[in-house]
Design a protein around this nucleic acid. Structure first.
Lengths: 334, 334
DNA sequence: TTGTAGGCGTTATCAT
DNA sequence: ATGATAACGCCTACAA
């Protein structure tokens, strides 16, 4: 592979002159510029950004560390991140942690060594060693989706408000016995959604005896298990509130297996949408997160830190969620 | 940020000795090793892989250039790639081209400058300038999903065979007038699926007059448009064969709008599955690609090139597809 | 407008 | 078992 020296030699100039041509910096006469460009073309010279990064201490590479790209919510977030990054000439390294703090920490260590210019992180746990480490290394960081005790920038959805809205929707339909199928109690989004649920029910003066909250994984099997556990309760809830899309799918399966129809026998609503593109018949009433916007916003905030535009104080950006009423929720029967 | 020199100074040794400790290479006495490790810990030293890459000419970073991570097929492929890569200590930079050759070429140029160790590429067009460029730079490359005229390694699904199987399924159900809603004629996967369709129909001695193939984009609106165009035909096809998942969704919408029920009035089958996780009620009969396996296989093949294990001759790996019969296809009415 | 010298942080090579 | 030297490819001073 030819280097800047080879080009310089070929054009009969100093390496720095070639550098000036490549980067459009400093003064270079047109004659020499053309000569250099010809040699670059001829030799098929490609600038080495690794060397450049070593000098400049900028890699123009960002890290996106999330739980699982396979979840359509994260897929969309990732697209928002990538689009915004490429707009500004940054590349994105993608990592899946599967909610494992061990994996997360391993990735973060390597990425730190690779000198990424910044991190977009979805922490596996709220007491995240990774957040501490990144901050200790003074690398810009924006946390997505979840809150952490540390002082960091955060971009997340208004889970509490969205859950409130969704619960209100059920209450407005006349439901009183609404069961909440939550996520893991240690994840802040799960907590927030439960909080929104309670706020709505309290406001509607639903007694504690009529409330049920169960905790499980943010997965299909989690939803399946939680729904099954609830189906033995008496009197049975008239509506189910799934804390995310996968839980809803698992719950739906459990309901159907036992012969309950949605929405005729029970209503079912969920936080998180299932992208319309994948659904032959959009069915689920949901509180949809603005996934693309989350990725885009988080990346832009991160970029502001790199350019020093962002204020030093940490900020939290709360994205609204959108209530989409479809066919899975209906009037409670008297 | 402390460097290897700072650690060396702190431990009273030469930088190279610290390097030996970090990399577990060469001889280092236990006493010195411990001393160095203590200083590393104390200073919070993090090795700089950019500098290392400059010397070693290896970045341990791979490029994944695909059309759109938002398509669940590619999402799954990407997960397969990332899992396999992280297993071997490689990072993956993700890029979306949206089928634009301009975007693709731009990404490839930058990635080449970043000295990625290898490329996983889904070429936007078959006469890909990017493939040429990568090969000229002698960087290992594996093409996914589509064929290109150049001599490269390719990992793709057996589109022809899968389409044949799917068409056979419809023929076995008694369908004769089967319409094919294909993708863009210039994309090899679309061509292959049409070929499989024709092979099955020829084998079943279906006359040309009963065959219909229309071409459109691999999108929902493409499917919608193609289905609409076909619905005016007389006699109407009894079955529709969508060349991918999005086309199927668009076609389904068009059918329903005109009041046709699937499968009672017309059968509908598709190439590509809709991930079960996203479907409340799996409905579509499909020929499913092994997406995860494709990503995993492609990455491993690429890695073999890096380690020099792969034979020099280029190879093509064909993955089988899986026929999954669900409810959208049924016996043709007499 | 162009060039010289030196260093970014690491490691390969060759001593000791 | 440990170290001195140089080089990877580029760019920021600072001259000329």
């Amino acid at each position: 592979m030819p280097t800047i020296k080879d080009v310089a030699k070929g054009a009969g100039v100093a390496p720095i002159t070639v550098s000036r041509v490549i980067n459009n910096s400093g003064y270079v006469s047109d004659a020499i510029r053309h000569r250099v460009e010809d040699v670059i073309e001829e030799l098929g010279y490609v600038p080495n950004r690794v060397a450049r990064s070593l000098r400049s201490k900028q890699t123009h590479t960002l890290a996106l560390v999330l739980t699982d790209i396979t979840n359509p919510f994260w897929t969309t977030v990732a697209r928002g991140v990538e689009d915004a990054a490429s707009e500004d000439g940054f590349s994105v390294i993608l990592c899946n942690t599967d909610e494992s703090e061990v994996k997360e920490h391993h990735y973060v260590r390597v990425l730190l060594q690779k000198q990424v210019d910044g991190f977009l992180l979805v922490p596996a746990h709220s007491a995240s060693r990774s957040v501490t480490l990144i901050q200790k290394q003074q690398v810009p960081l924006v946390v997505m989706d979840r809150t952490v005790p540390a002082a960091v920038d955060i971009v997340r959805s208004d889970s509490e408000g969205g859950a409130y809205q969704l619960a209100r929707h059920l209450l407005d339909l006349g439901h009183r016995r609404i069961a909440m199928l939550s996520g893991p109690p240690e994840v802040s989004t799960a907590q927030d959604r439960v909080a929104g649920y309670h706020r709505a029910l309290t406001e509607a003066e639903v007694p504690d005896a009529d409330r049920t909250v169960v905790y499980g994984a943010f997965t299909e099997s989690g939803g399946y298990g939680m729904a099954q556990a609830l189906l033995t309760a008496f009197p049975r809830p008239t509506a189910f509130f799934a804390a995310n899309n996968f839980i809803a799918i698992g719950a739906f399966r459990a309901l159907r297996e036992i012969g309950l129809r949605v929405p005729e026998d029970v209503s079912l609503v969920a936080f998180d949408d299932i992208p319309a593109a994948f659904a032959l018949e959009p069915f689920l009433t949901v509180s949809a997160q603005r996934a693309y916007e989350m990725g885009q916003t988080a990346l832009r905030l991160l970029l502001q830190h790199l350019t020093g535009e962002a204020s030093l104080g940490h900020q939290e950006i709360l994205l609204p969620t959108d209530l989409i009423v479809r066919r899975s929720s209906q009037q409670a029967r008297a």
